[in-house]
Simulated assay, not measured.
Amino acid sequence: MSRPTADWLIRLRQNTGLASAIALFLAFYLFYNIFHPKGFSTPVLVQNADEAIALAMVAMAQTIPVLMGGLDLSVGAVMTMVNCLASHLVIGSPLQIAFGIVTCIAAGAAFGFANGCIVVYGRIQPIITTLATGAIAIGIALFLRPKPGGKVDEDLSWALTNSLSDFAETYGLFDGGKAAWFQPIAWIPAALVLLVLVILLIWVPFRRTVIGRTIYAVGSAEGAAFMSGLPVDRAKIAAFTLSGVFAALGGLFLAIQTSSGNADLPQASAYTLNSIAAVVLGGTSLLGGSGSAVGSVFGALILRVISFNFRIFDIPPLMQSLVEGLILLAAVSLGGLRVLQVKNRLELFR
């Protein structure tokens, strides 16, 4: 076996969870498009992307605390809070819109930073901390939006929830989207490009930093990470801060998509629970130390594609929960099987 082939196989074994999530997503999405009356078309792809991006962002937010072996139960609430805040601020002149976007992201980061400080300096378990702070976030959301309403800049809403050609036409770019070189990519949903940019500009650089590597080390063995001189406390605070940023981006996009704000508690709870499911489906271990935000994105896409298939085949609501539960149980079981195999191998050395 050649060296490049061997290296590729090693990488594949190290990223089995991610590879499985990608394969499962492609299988479900291919099945969906085959049976959709307008499948394999730009409008269908744009609609699907718009519905999936908010959950993908929240799933990325959940991934980082999970990599440390904890859970963040406030991600859905922070997303809802920022959604309500954006319905007040993301409107007006270009400068006002930019200020509103920055303020929304900063609000999510500040909330995540507070979570991290409470966990580190208050020495309270993340699941308890975020359960309490999540209630605070919902309270702020209700204060901002006692009733659903508000408005987001119409041009921004249209540009980011349609294809790149619509984005270019809205802002007068690339000859109104008619440039010859632009046509091969004009069909791509703008929301999908936004998601890819978030991954490339935020997650990938962060993962390669000392803090990013420390997060993985903490999830694997916090005591060993501390004894090695790694900045454990800083890593924890940074992890929750970045989690808040991703949750804020999810809330911001939800406001842009719906052009309104809604302090909906059931919605916040659903996003939080689905984010945990997406993390598991994406191959991230709930024990910490293994996984990737990219895998969680595909986990979120899997959950959304499953719901898309429910529409095509008109599955009753009661059956929908059953099917989703069975798929999640299967994913958890596969992850548990890998842990059991490692445990059995270690027992050989006792």
Results as ranks from 00 to 15, higher is better:
residue 230 L to K: 14
residue 228 S to Q: 10
residue 246 F to A: 15
residue 26 L to R: 04
residue 131 L to K: 12
residue 47 Q to V: 09
residue 198 V to F: 11
residue 257 Q to R: 15
residue 135 A to N: 11
residue 18 L to F: 13
residue 277 A to Y: 01
residue 145 R to H: 08
residue 298 F to S: 03
residue 60 M to P: 02
residue 207 R to M: 13
residue 251 G to H: 01
residue 49 A to S: 13
residue 125 Q to E: 12
residue 344 N to L: 14
residue 127 I to P: 08
residue 22 I to S: 00
residue 101 I to V: 15
residue 10 I to D: 13
residue 264 D to T: 09
residue 89 L to Y: 00
residue 44 V to K: 11
residue 58 V to Y: 06
residue 66 V to L: 01
residue 239 A to M: 04
residue 63 T to G: 00
residue 311 R to Q: 14
residue 27 A to V: 15
residue 257 Q to K: 15
residue 305 V to C: 14
residue 215 I to V: 15
residue 217 A to M: 00
residue 40 F to S: 05
residue 204 V to N: 07
residue 185 I to N: 07
residue 338 R to T: 14
residue 335 G to R: 03
residue 23 A to Y: 09
residue 296 S to G: 08
residue 5 T to S: 11
residue 295 G to W: 01
residue 131 L to C: 00
residue 18 L to T: 06
residue 64 I to Q: 07
residue 118 I to M: 02
residue 317 P to E: 09
residue 41 S to H: 01
residue 343 K to C: 12
residue 285 S to F: 09
residue 246 F to R: 12
residue 272 T to D: 10
residue 128 I to A: 04
residue 291 G to N: 00
residue 42 T to Y: 12
residue 157 S to K: 03
residue 63 T to M: 07
residue 135 A to L: 13
residue 346 L to R: 15
residue 43 P to D: 08
residue 27 A to H: 03
residue 342 V to W: 03
residue 224 A to Q: 07
residue 122 G to N: 10
residue 18 L to M: 10
residue 181 W to N: 11
